[in-house]
Design a protein around this nucleic acid. Structure first.
Length: 791
DNA sequence: TACCGGGTTGTTTTT
DNA sequence: CAACCCGGTA
């Protein structure tokens, strides 16, 4: 742990000598990258466009610092936003230096580094009477909400009118801006119907009594502590001789203050960012931070990385054309000398299911090597990037049925699952018996016959005696405040926790063994074993995985710490899989083939983003689109669906306005499979309207499609010569020719209908629900056995 | 106290 | 169309 305390020891000879050695890691850098690596002293702003070798520059810079002996690993502060990024940087530095350097103790996320700092000064955080102890726990969102609910209830407020979630959001926002309750502006304090400031203060106090902090506190406490204790600040300033910041465009006010405090003495700070990839404004990130860097650090060197090594010229051009619409950019001109590749592909679909089907087929074709221009592609090289996580479902469903292996990245997280959180609560309580939140979570899990009434009794007794809930429970047991089965069970529970706690302190008992015994003897494992719901086995597996994860840690405390901060699971490499993730999760990643579905106005750009933040919101959405396109190395495919299910209701929408903004020369418009040959009907179907739809009527009557984008779409579709798209490899395709107009057919979802028209392999059918365009393969003549309908 | 059923509610993105 | 929360009942 204390690698850092060697900071004032002299730099070892081996490293000094290194300065004289050749520095092979500098080879192959372009001029700008090299400048970024060698400008070690003083403030540097590195504007690094997508795919320009930003991480390489950053890691090489660190390697250079070490090799020149300018700093020891413990004297370099390197901050990232995600654990993934931190891990990658560590790996790459190790590779550059041939593993000669022990880990970098201060390379990590803002949050993980803040925890390390706070643990050393916990006692400085407080309100005069209460203060933190170094063993403070870190609450996750769930705990936070539960706590706020209690506080809201304590004020006798109706939870319906004052939702805890909303308050949590407000508090988060304040902490992002480093506003403590006393510093809260009047307007903010009056939010939440006037209760905001008061509840915030109550919440902060409650956290202190619980010896707990939430995520926002990690940053805010650091900053306030630095401000209140210049001597402490000084010691950290002295320690960190060089500061590097990744993804600087995503820093919020609190992080900005944090950095400025630490950097202001020596000003050896290097911030790397790309204003065009700022996509976290909604959680408080301030693009302004990057825009005003030069003002904050006068004399800063600004270095631009503009040569892109990732994507084809077409992909780059499409992305650049799109982002050019944004105002107020710092401005970069990305270029590449890569060979021309494929144009960005654009395709519209009838609905989200058709979109998922088509993408599934495309992926199979690429994977099978059936695309000459691209060649055979591993599934690992393919990603589907969506705007909102609910879009993932259509793909999961589809891929499940066709047996296409996929992995969801950043989906429901491992550590957020109920069984894991329960188990963790057991660990927490055993490690720190005063953890009341953990106690509340698990006293009655598994069921011990301890309901609201019992819990209330315990709370009252605990409060009267000024002790933790666990101790309160102990008193309740001793004094027999409770009757019957509940009492016996509570006694067992309390003595059990006591016993396990003793084991946790006893260093001769392995923590892994303790964890296993804990889950067994408490009856928690049994609870799931007796559960006959379909997901119970999976939960047991998760518990096993959890225990296995314990092995990599010294003790339970260490593990709990890790989990609180590293909420991501390192997904096991399980063969070839297509990746599905949100655009946000995709930042920093790259894939040869990228699918970008759901480009519809309202979904992307997201309606709420526009409603809440207007032009700013729209521009952030556009940056998100930019991030999406620039993830692709060889081929990007954008798609939209005319109809999508929202809240269980089908809803039609227009193609995204971003589609209009793509430079036409770099885009190839594909005709969706199975539509009419062309003309009016095709155009309608292309936009997702069909006879009977309100949209269709509107279009027929007026000029709904008079938007520039729509016109261009039509123009492009007509320009195209012949079908660009191959016939999809539909299973069991029954030719449309086997039907005639007037046939009665049956569809698995829409039921029975009548064929009203046909084109190629698509039928227009009148169902009860209205007219639909359906591929012939998906319907059956009425009366025919439906055993080969591909559903 | 536990369980069941109905009504309500919500979906942007996350350390 | 979920999932979740609440209230009523066994």
């Amino acid at each position: 742990m204390d690698l850092i305390d060697d900071s004032d020891k002299p730099v070892p000879l081996s490293q000094r000598a290194a300065a004289a050695r050749p520095m092979p890691y500098l080879d192959g850098l372009n001029a700008a990258q090299r400048a970024a690596v060698e400008a070690l002293d003083g403030p540097v702003l590195l504007l690094a466009g997508a795919g320009t070798g930003k991480t390489r520059a950053l890691t090489t810079r660190i390697a250079h610092l070490l090799m020149l002996g300018k700093a020891r690993p413990g004297q370099i502060l390197a901050v990232t936003f995600t654990n993934k990024a931190a891990r990658e940087m560590k790996d790459r530095i190790a590779r550059l230096l041939g593993e000669v350097v022990e880990g970098m103790p201060w390379l990590g996320t803002f949050h993980s580094i803040s925890v390390k700092i706070l643990r050393r000064h916990a006692e400085l955080i407080g309100n005069g009477t209460l203060h933190l102890k170094p063993s403070f726990t870190i609450l996750d969102t769930d705990d936070q909400i539960r706590l706020l609910k209690q506080l809201i209830a304590a004020e006798n407020l109706d939870e319906k009118r004052w939702p805890a979630r909303q308050l949590a959001g407000l508090i988060d926002g304040w902490k992002n801006r480093c506003l403590t309750p006393p510093n809260l502006p009047k307007g903010d304090a009056a939010s939440f119907d006037g209760w905001g400031g008061r509840l915030y203060a109550a919440y902060q106090e409650r956290l202190l009594t619980l010896n707990a902090v939430d995520f926002g506190d990690l940053l805010m406490h650091c900053v306030t502590m630095f401000q209140a204790h210049p001597d402490v600040l000084k010691s950290w300033q002295d320690r960190f001789r060089y500061i590097l910041v990744d993804e600087y465009q995503d820093t919020n006010v609190a992080q900005y203050m944090w950095l400025r405090l630490l950097a202001q003495a020596h000003r050896n700070i290097c911030c790397v960012g790309d204003d065009d990839q700022s996509i976290y404004g909604w959680r408080g990130a301030e693009v302004g931070n990057i825009l005003r860097f030069e003002k904050d650090f006068p004399g800063a060197q600004v270095i631009r990385l503009e040569q892109n090594y990732r994507s084809t010229p077409q992909i780059l051009a499409a992305a650049s054309g799109l982002i050019a619409t944004n105002q107020g950019r710092l401005g970069k001109t990305l270029w590449t000398d890569a060979e021309p590749g494929e144009k960005v592909r654009l395709i519209g679909h009838w609905d989200s299911e058709a979109e998922a089907r088509w993408i599934g087929e495309e992926i199979e074709a690429f994977h099978g090597g059936h695309r000459a221009a691209i060649g055979q592609v591993s599934l690992n090289d393919i990603a589907i990037l969506v705007r909102a996580s609910h879009q993932m479902r259509a793909f999961e469903d589809r891929f499940m049925t066709i047996g296409l292996p996929y992995r969801v990245i950043g989906g429901p997280r491992f550590y957020e699952r109920a069984e894991i959180r329960d188990a963790m609560a057991y660990f927490r309580l055993v490690v720190s018996p005063a953890d009341d939140l953990a106690f509340e979570r698990i006293v009655n899990t598994p069921k011990r016959g301890l309901g609201d009434k019992a819990l209330q009794t315990i709370q009252v007794v605990a409060r009267q005696n000024g002790v933790s809930l666990l101790d309160g429970a102990r008193i309740v047991v001793e004094e027999g405040h409770l009757g019957g089965k509940g009492l016996t069970n509570l006694r067992d529970f309390v003595t059990g926790i006591g016993r396990w706690h003793a084991d946790a302190i006893d260093s001769t008992v392995s923590h892994v063994e303790l964890a296993e015994r804990l889950l067994d003897e408490s009856g928690y494992t049994a609870m799931w074993q007796n559960d006959k719901s379909p997901d119970a086995p999976g939960r047991l597996d998760n518990l096993k995985e959890l225990v296995k994860a314990l092995e990599e840690f010294e003790n339970l405390q260490g593990f709990l710490e890790h989990v609180a901060l590293v909420m991501d699971r390192d997904d096991g490499e399980a063969g070839e899989q297509v990746s599905i993730m949100t655009l946000h999760a995709a930042k920093g990643l790259e894939f040869p083939l990228v699918f970008l579905p759901g480009w519809e106005d309202g979904l992307f750009p997201n309606q709420r983003a526009m409603d809440e933040s207007g032009t700013k919101g729209l521009e952030e959405e556009r940056r998100l689109a930019y991030v999406g396109i620039t993830r692709a190395e060889r081929l990007a495919t954008i798609s939209f669906a005319g109809n999508r299910r929202l809240y269980g209701q089908w809803q039609s929408s227009m193609p995204s306005r971003f589609i209009d903004e793509l430079p036409a020369d770099d885009v190839e418009v594909l005709t969706p499979p199975g539509l009419y040959g062309g003309g009016y009907g095709a155009a309608m179907a292309f936009a997702g309207a069909s006879p009977g739809d309100a949209m269709y009527d509107r279009a027929a009557k007026a000029d709904v499609y008079n938007s520039p984008g729509w016109k261009r779409m039509q123009a492009r579709a007509v320009e195209r010569k012949g079908p660009v798209h191959r016939t999809p490899v539909t299973i069991n395709a029954s030719p449309a020719s086997s039907f005639t107009v007037g046939d009665r057919v049956i569809h698995p979802k829409f039921g029975e209908g009548e064929v009203m028209g046909m084109a190629e392999d698509t039928l227009t059918i009148q169902f009860e629900a209205g007219f639909k365009n359906i591929k012939a393969a998906y319907v059956q003549s009425v009366g025919i056995a439906d055993d080969d309908v591909p559903f």
